[in-house]
Measured scan of single mutants.
Amino acid sequence: MATDAALRRLLRLHRTEIAVAVDSAFPLLHALADHDVVPEDKFQETLHLKEKEGCPQAFHALLSWLLTQDSTAILDFWRVLFKDYNLERYGRLQPILDSFPKDVDLSQPRKGRKPPAVPKALVPPPRLPTKRKASEEARAAAPAALTPRGTASPGSQLKAKPPKKPESSAEQQRLPLGNGIQTMSASVQRAVAMSSGDVPGARGAVEGILIQQVFESGGSKKCIQVGGEFYTPSKFEDSGSGKNKARSSSGPKPLVRAKGAQGAAPGGGEARLGQQGSVPAPLALPSDPQLHQKNEDECAVCRDGGELICCDGCPRAFHLACLSPPLREIPSGTWRCSSCLQATVQEVQPRAEEPRPQEPPVETPLPPGLRSAGEEVRGPPGEPLAGMDTTLVYKHLPAPPSAAPLPGLDSSALHPLLCVGPEGQQNLAPGARCGVCGDGTDVLRCTHCAAAFHWRCHFPAGTSRPGTGLRCRSCSGDVTPAPVEGVLAPSPARLAPGPAKDDTASHEPALH
């Protein structure tokens, strides 16, 4: 009773807030009518008042009428009001819900409408889902798969039609296919003929059939049928067999079959498995989609049935006599038709004709302190090069084509190399640097090759510096006499390219 009084008091307290929050009759008014909170006449009256005075006034009048009803109607109103779709449509209802007392429970059932309790003993237990329907569909599909699609060729003596089998029958139906081979029951999904010589313990000319048996419980189990008994694959494991010639990621696949039913060829011909030897223990289905393919039931050349050999690369099948050149017997292992072999060759040939990528240039590290003349020119003028003790990398590039010797140069053309002071002394051009340390401070000019250098860098042994005729380390061993002091540049003949010694390969005349 306390809860009923509290709900009535809360409705009177929030009546105006609810009326202002509800700006549309749908969905709240319609939901109240659906849950029998508002009768039909009051529903029509509220809609009429909404058209006349507006939605807030109409709902305020409806809530005032609701306060005169019993506690069950008020409880049902609060339940409908706080439904998710009403809270989404009328956003101003959320503060009312947040301020609702926590001790007021809106989930209690309506009085007088409590459903009768059902004894637990009368409640049926839930049924577990079964796979009976899938099993029945598999039974119905198996006879259809064994139905012949056409008439065999005159040369083929193997013609068999499976008798119709009602689904209610649980007995196995067997077809006489000759040579002791028996087909599987209607619940078998796949059958492959297997030679009895590969099964340990088999006697006589009995041949087993590799099947997948579907049981009534819905589970499946792969086994071997020899005669009327089934054997699990673990009985046929043979770890010492060295003649297993397995197909790549293979499961067994029928390579020879008669049109209309699988079996042995007439005249004692023995149908073979995809792999010879003992049956392997793992009978998992292969991951290669080509091995799941269903080959055609007629020859791809003459479009006739009979004894066919199936290609492992495509769905086509052929007569042995229709092949070019014809085959006398079934080859062992994987067999592919000429079209598949030709496609494989065409895929391999473009790969062989692809040009080989060019090898990157060989990189040879230079000892610290040495650099090529090109690196000396590329440096920024007026700045010493940083990191001189790091190992430089010199790339061996292809030799350029031989060019004509340089033409003779006048001494005026070499004027930018040297600057003559007032006393006739050779001065260095701006930006000249030593080729060893890279520093341009207090550098000297070689009178023979006009290269800038430090005496301490080229002659670290402490050799005394002569007063005139300074030469760098590369030119100090040259027998050519030094030019007379005061000459602007060496003779043009000295600039012609010539053979250089091994220790002077990195010091070429550089223009500054």
Rank of each mutant, 00 (worst) to 15 (best):
D4W: 03
A5P: 07
L7T: 13
R9D: 05
L13H: 03
L13G: 01
H14D: 00
R15S: 01
T16A: 00
A19R: 03
A21Y: 02
A21E: 06
V22W: 01
P27A: 05
L29W: 03
A33D: 00
D34A: 01
H35N: 07
H35C: 01
V37W: 00
P39A: 00
E40N: 00
E40P: 05
F43Y: 02
F43G: 04
E45Q: 12
H48P: 00
H48Y: 13
L49V: 04
L49W: 01
L49F: 03
K50D: 15
E51A: 02
K52V: 14
G54N: 00
G54C: 02
A58C: 01
F59G: 02
F59Q: 00
F59D: 02
F59H: 03
F59E: 05
H60Y: 03
A61C: 01
A61Q: 04
L62N: 03
L62G: 00
L62Q: 02
W65A: 00
L67C: 00
L67T: 00
L67E: 00
L67D: 06
Q69F: 01
D70I: 04
S71F: 03
S71R: 03
T72I: 02
A73S: 02
I74D: 02
L75K: 06
W78M: 03
R79H: 13
F82Q: 04
K83C: 02
D84S: 11
Y85I: 07
N86C: 03
L87A: 02
L87P: 02
E88D: 03
R89Q: 04
Y90P: 02
Y90M: 05
G91T: 04
L93N: 04
L93I: 03
Q94V: 14
Q94W: 15
P95M: 14
I96K: 03
I96R: 02
L97F: 14
D98T: 01
D103E: 15
D105A: 15
Q108A: 02
Q108D: 15
Q108L: 02
P109Y: 06
P109L: 07
P109G: 03
K111Y: 13
G112K: 03
R113I: 15
K114Q: 03
P115M: 09
P115L: 13
K120G: 11
A121Q: 02
A121N: 11
L122D: 14
L122E: 07
V123G: 14
P124T: 06
P125D: 08
P125E: 08
L128G: 15
T130A: 15
T130I: 11
T130W: 14
R132I: 01
R132T: 01
A134R: 05
A134F: 13
A134C: 14
S135F: 12
S135W: 15
E137M: 15
A138I: 11
A140C: 05
A141T: 09
A141M: 05
A141F: 15
A142P: 08
A142I: 09
A145C: 11
L146I: 08
R149N: 06
R149Q: 15
A152H: 07
S153W: 14
S156N: 14
K159P: 04
K159D: 06
A160W: 15
A160F: 11
K161W: 03
P162A: 07
P163H: 06
K164H: 13
P166S: 09
P166W: 00
E171K: 06
Q172M: 15
Q173E: 06
L175S: 06
L175R: 11
P176A: 14
G178D: 05
I181R: 06
I181V: 07
Q182M: 04
M184Y: 04
S185I: 03
S185Y: 03
S187T: 12
S187Y: 02
R190A: 08
R190P: 09
A191V: 02
V192C: 08
V192T: 09
S195C: 09
S195V: 04
D198I: 09
V199C: 07
P200C: 14
P200K: 05
G201L: 14
A202V: 11
A202Q: 04
R203I: 13
G204L: 03
E207L: 02
I209L: 07
I209V: 06
V214I: 06
S217P: 05
G219P: 05
K222Y: 00
I224L: 06
V226D: 06
G227W: 06
G228Y: 04
E229F: 06
Y231V: 07
Y231S: 04
P233R: 12
S234K: 08
K235Q: 10
K235N: 04
K235R: 13
E237Q: 10
E237G: 11
D238S: 07
D238G: 10
S241F: 13
G242C: 11
K243L: 15
K243A: 05
K245N: 04
K245A: 14
A246L: 10
A246H: 14
R247Y: 06
R247P: 03
S250H: 09
S250L: 10
K253N: 07
V256L: 09
V256G: 11
V256F: 14
A258V: 14
A258D: 04
A258E: 12
K259G: 00
G260A: 07
G267D: 05
G268D: 08
G269K: 11
G269E: 11
A271N: 11
R272G: 08
